[in-house]
């Protein structure tokens, strides 16, 4: 299938989700349950996307696991996004040199 069609569907849906409520909605969502689900969705999506994909992200499970551990530890200590990201990459790269 053409990549252009994929991109069109992807961009179209993403735009409509943003646009329709922003342009048309005049009331507030009342349901506490629905609000709660929407509150957790971003974290759940990022987590489901990251695990297990991160373990296959470098083409080598060992370097990826080392990078993941470094990322989790540095993130736990609240280092900036870019520091966590580059450190994970550096850890995976250096580990690869020894394999």
């Amino acid at each position: 299938m053409s990549i252009a069609i994929y991109i069109f569907v992807m961009a179209g849906i993403t735009y409509l989700i943003r646009m329709l409520p922003f342009a048309l909605f005049r009331k507030k969502i009342k349901s506490r349950f629905f609000k709660s689900v929407l509150y957790y969705i971003p974290y759940a999506v990022l987590s489901a996307m990251t695990f297990p994909s991160i373990f296959f992200s470098t083409g080598n499970t060992v370097t990826a696991v080392v990078g993941t551990v470094i990322a989790v530890v540095l993130a736990y200590f609240k280092l900036p996004l870019i520091v966590v990201s580059i450190s994970a990459c550096a850890a995976a790269f250096v580990t690869g040199l020894f394999l």
Binding site: S57, G59, A71, L74, S85, A90
Partner: peptide
Amino acid sequence: SLTAAMGIMLYGMFVAIIIPPAKTDHR
């Protein structure tokens, strides 16, 4: 060798987004 390792960068960022709030918020 370097770009393969860079494949982890985006996921590293996702980790850095989700871990800090999870530390203080058990939900």
